[in-house]
Design a protein around this nucleic acid. Structure first.
Lengths: 222, 222
DNA sequence: GCTAGACTGTCAACAGCTTTACAGTTGTCC
DNA sequence: GGACAACTGTAAAGCTGTTGACAGTCTAGC
């Protein structure tokens, strides 16, 4: 009961499910499970088969991979209202990434079978999946672009700006370690860049985070 | 007439269209246009609106982007039998990349409206689009992974191996310049790596290309 | 409040890649 | 077959980011 209310809340907020035929929406809400994950608990493992589509109700999920050297490579973070895990669900292949709850989080899980059935019954559901997929694909393309073309400083600026528009807030809570991993540089280099920005008045740093003061100056870095 | 025969040839060879309901296949073949592109001719420009889905019938297409510094960043090459351009088609956004004919090439073009209409009539068509999309998405994820985790030498090996399995051949025709651009390193560095591999007997280099001799040794590099 | 553990600041040494530069090679087009 | 353009080979110089090391700072939990 409580679970369904929570799911509904996310669904009505979120555009992709709001536009579906009511029959499909109902079926999804009915089949949706809500699961709570503790801080650092694994949501899915890279290489595993897909069981469902995940939506973040509360908390935050870190999507990452582990290099053979053992370092964790952070790809992105999923904020409340966002969905992930559609690729392996749709193509039947293995999960592309690891996912962990960054903090205690609640996730909605739409079982694979239900989603796939609805895809075949309602083209609108397929369309919604396709849009989700396209978004993640464009995100990945942008990441490749950035890595090939942009300097570490520019990449860092892009990430921060992207993140601040995603969450509509200008304070970002993340360690320098993880921030570096997101854009493929070391903690020390991240620190140096952040320091230089702070001295220019673009940001202020706090423990385990930062706040953007001059967003236009950051945009100009790019 | 000739055009339709060519298209049909590609379609029947290619798995994704072969599995569709015959009604959908017929409609696609009927609507397909074949267009010939000269060497270096632009197929699509990054940022442009999408007009259709492209399939390579003959020749080869280079997918790239241009950095603000003016360098061309090569993303990938599309070989005969492969399709591209589905993202902008499906989500209505701008083209994600530039595409040029590498050599004189023939492309099949499936008009946007026809594809989208069929998607809504036949879930199988949507499914085919989704699989295409998933493939490209996984490709992009792998590229990010590589850039963040692997050394230039490993990235180069991966690219060559991927390419050689794609085309089932072990001689690859590409300049060191472009090869470097594909994995984000300079021509000189590419040259150094190739030379070292040649001295170890992994490959032999020729003008504007190379041949893989010891494919297992290359696999071991990764 | 104290302490352990996580995070940050900083620096020097080092490695790897780029850039610049130039000479040599190969292919193509008159 | 000669000339030009594209490609390759090579090396030195310089830059940028990494690594490793260690001290300082912050926070949570007892």
């Amino acid at each position: 009961m409580v679970e369904h209310k929570l799911t509904l809340g996310l669904l009505t907020e979120n555009e992709w499910l709001a536009g579906l035929p009511s029959q499909a929406t109902e079926r999804l809400i009915q089949a949706a499970k809500v699961r709570r994950f503790k801080e650092n608990q694994s949501v899915q493992a890279k290489g595993a088969p897909a069981d469902g589509l995940y939506g973040v109700l509360s908390g935050e999920v870190r999507v990452s991979a582990t290099s053979f050297a053992g370092d964790e490579i952070v790809f992105t973070r999923i904020l409340p209202g966002q969905w992930f895990g559609e690729i392996a669900l749709l193509d039947g292949g293995p999960r592309t990434h690891d996912a962990h709850a960054l903090i205690e989080s609640e996730l909605a899980i739409l079982p694979k079978k239900v989603v796939m059935d609805l895809c075949f019954s309602f083209p609108e559901v397929y369309r919604a999946m396709v849009l989700l997929l396209c978004g993640h694909c464009r995100q990945a393309f942008t990441a490749v672009d950035d890595l090939l073309v942009c300097s570490p400083e520019q990449r860092l600026a892009r990430r921060l700006l992207q993140r601040s528009t995603d969450s509509k807030r200008l304070n970002i809570e993340i360690s320098q370690q993880e921030l570096g991993s997101l854009i493929g540089i070391s903690r020390q280099s991240t620190n140096k860049i952040l320091k230089s920005w702070e001295s220019k008045g673009f940001i202020v740093r706090v423990y385990r985070g930062l706040e953007i003061i001059n967003i236009d100056a950051l945009r100009a870095v790019i």
